[in-house]
């Protein structure tokens, strides 16, 4: 994953959030963005995912240009997985349907196999038929992770994965998340406010200043 000279602002005459931002992430590496609130950490993730369009600059993912002056690959074609800060689990779908949401057109059997595999991975077997509102915060987060990983993305983005969890859960979830990431060997970018989180999770920390 590589970012070249990325510049961005939200509104036509708003403040420039990013100015010639550079970044390179190696395969299977986990990096963490740290920096003050409002510095643009989430914005970088949104640009990588294709949810925003940069003013200028280029982004490459797995050797493919996903955005530059001529090209714009829409988010659904980027194979970038993103776990949202408040998880954004679809409330009208149960856990199994949430996890299989991004799987595309495959047979029912393959689908349920994949769902079970993911539930195994996150240690939530037996929750397939629950609805998101019947889950605790920690469980919701793990389902969101499973949903994101199910379609085998090439890059995993996590925006403040621990901010909605209370202290007691944090340690455990942190370990589990790190395990899962290493187990699959996926390239990961995460954002965190917390230095301890960053130190624990990341191979490398990137500071972003406003």
């Amino acid at each position: 994953m590589k970012i070249n000279n990325l510049s961005f602002k939200y509104e036509k005459n708003g403040d420039q959030i990013l100015n010639n931002f550079q970044l390179e992430v190696n395969k299977q590496e986990t990096i963490c963005f740290v920096g003050p609130s409002g510095s643009g950490k989430s914005t970088v993730l949104r640009l990588i995912a294709g949810l925003e369009v940069p003013l200028s600059g280029e982004i490459f993912i797995a050797g493919r240009t996903v955005v530059n002056d001529q090209v714009f690959i829409p988010p659904e074609k980027r194979k970038v997985g993103m776990v949202f800060q408040d998880y954004a689990l679809f409330p009208h779908l149960n856990v199994a349907e949430n996890i299989s949401f991004g799987l595309g057109k495959i047979s029912k059997i393959d689908k349920s196999r994949k769902v079970n595999e993911m539930l195994d991975l996150i240690n939530l077997n037996g929750f397939a038929n629950r609805y998101p509102h019947q889950l605790s915060g920690g469980q919701q987060q793990r389902i969101a992770l499973a949903r994101t990983l199910a379609p085998n993305p090439r890059l995993l983005l996590l925006d403040e994965p621990f901010s909605n969890l209370d202290e007691s859960l944090r340690d455990e979830i942190r370990k589990e998340l790190k395990n899962i990431i290493k187990q699959i060997g996926i390239t990961t970018i995460l954002v965190s406010h917390d230095q301890a989180d960053a130190d624990f999770m990341a191979d490398r920390k990137i500071f972003i200043y406003s």
Binding site: G50, P75, D86
Partner: peptide, 21 residues
Amino acid sequence: TKFFEASRTLGKSVTATFFKV
């Protein structure tokens, strides 16, 4: 917009997202 965005990053187009989410 978060559900919309989540669905887009999960590989669904605007129209598919509209009908499914």
